[in-house]
Amino acid sequence: MNEEEIKQTVIRLLKNIAPDMNPEELQPDDSIRQTLGIDSFDSLQFVVAMDEAFGIDTPEEDYGKIQTMKSLLEYIKSRMRK
């Protein structure tokens, strides 16, 4: 999966969580939660979906590393390499 494919998958997953928002318009450094109005419950659902889609396992202490689109994509890439 290249970076663009990862990004498209992330956007699709975010759209499932917040169907009435436009995750494709997120800037690399925007806070995903604040920009999309996602609450803690939605975030948890997103992490569940993300782990499933990319076959990774995101521990709770890493939640701080996935706050923006840029950091999220970096994080997924690094976890997929492991």
Partner: peptide
């Protein structure tokens, strides 16, 4: 919460609420 969640898969994690 952190302690409890460590032993759980993402799906089963608890939120403060």
């Amino acid at each position: 919460l952190t302690d409890t969640n460590k032993q759980r898969s993402v799906k089963d994690r608890l939120l403060p609420v």
